[in-house]
């Protein structure tokens, strides 16, 4: 994926001016008390958040947390059962016809015609817009210049994802919904996609994305919302999420030669919580690492358990996520 210049050079916009613009522009998305039920099942239980204009906002959560339900309400696919949603100041379900020309969408399923060539799909979507981006330049941007004549069914999973990204961008949208945009991409394409998303933010676009990759959220997002079981359980900047937790909490990661019950670890006097991460691998949280280490090693000596690894660490976003949801991302 390389850079292609198709247009003239604009005046440089410095970061401060961009910040002022952003503050003046208000919220691109505003969600209040959003509820969505499917029959008996409550998928979204009263969620509230706002995405500022020009911001990259990541929605994290284990599968079934309600991320896709939320994003699909905002894209106008379904009505909510309660609360309100405003997208670019419009009701996404009722004002779809006015909203759709202004948003770009990447769904979990690529939604490409298998029998059309990559270039043909992009040309088709370009014709839906009055002032589309040049499809050739876009194919170049996502690294598919040489695959323009390839039928979509013959593209690899990662190539299809990149084409779906190009389709989302062809209408030069001011607001992008990217549902797991880099799933299926190789590491190189993921990084190139991050560059594109960052560049879009530079241009003033707003991005709402969901992802399974912690590093993606951490590197890309201005703010991260964590959803679990239909509720919003955390909302902060990446730094705020990790440091806010770790100023008071330190994690001790230990790998043992045998299993131990987590209750015994959690029962240590200075331990706040304990969990089993994998076979023989445990994490204990504490506000006092020095004392806990003494307690822990004493316990292990008394039990006659071998220690193969012991690490004292600051929380990573992944740790924060696990602590808040009690679940692996791909649970």
């Amino acid at each position: 994926m390389d850079t292609t210049q198709t247009n003239a050079t604009p005046p440089a916009v410095d970061a401060a001016a961009r910040e002022r613009q952003r503050a003046a522009a208000g919220d691109a998305i505003r969600v209040e008390g959003l509820r969505k039920t499917y029959g008996e099942k409550v998928a979204v239980k009263g969620v509230s958040f706002a995405v500022r204009r020009g911001e990259v906002f990541a929605l994290l959560g284990p599968n079934g947390a309600g991320k896709t339900s939320t994003i699909e309400i905002l894209e106008g696919y379904r009505a909510c059962n309660g609360g309100t949603a405003a997208v670019l100041g419009m009701d996404p379900h009722r004002d779809g016809e006015r909203l759709k020309p202004r948003i770009g969408v990447m769904l979990q399923q690529d939604g490409l015609y298998p029998s059309l060539r990559a270039g043909e799909v992009l040309d088709l979507f370009a014709r839906f817009f009055a002032q589309p981006e040049d499809p050739v330049a876009l194919l170049d941007l996502v690294g598919l210049r040489d695959s323009s004549g390839v039928r979509c069914r013959q593209l690899s999973g990662g190539q299809k994802r990149r084409l779906a990204l190009a389709v989302a961008l062809v209408g030069r949208p001011e607001l992008l919904f990217l549902d797991e945009p880099t799933t299926g991409m190789d590491p190189q394409a993921r990084r190139a996609t991050w560059d594109i998303i960052r560049a879009l933010r530079e241009r003033g676009a707003t991005v709402l994305l969901t992802t399974h990759f912690m590093d993606e959220a951490e590197r890309l997002a201005d703010r991260i919302a964590i959803m679990d079981d239909g509720e919003l359980i955390a909302l902060d900047t990446p730094a705020g999420l990790t440091s806010g937790q770790s100023t008071t909490t330190t994690e001790i990661h230990v790998t043992l030669g045998a299993e131990i019950e987590t209750a015994a670890l959690a029962a240590l006097p200075t331990a706040r919580a304990a969990r089993r991460d994998a076979s023989g691998k445990y994490t204990v949280e504490t506000g006092d690492a020095r004392t806990l280490l003494v307690e822990l090693t004493t316990l292990l000596r008394d039990r006659g358990l071998d220690v193969s690894e012991l690490r004292v660490g600051r929380s990573s976003l992944e740790d924060v996520f696990l602590r808040l949801t009690g679940k692996e991302m791909r649970a």
């Binding site: 003239a8 020309p101 202004r102 009055a130 981006e133 949208p173 001011e174 530079e202």
Partner: peptide
């Protein structure tokens, strides 16, 4: 906004509907 140097992204159009007839 139009393409700037070294910025690999399309220009965006804000504030106006961009639908074709």
């Amino acid at each position: 906004t139009t393409g700037g140097p070294g910025v690999p992204a399309p220009a965006i159009i804000a504030g106006v509907p961009n639908a074709a007839p």
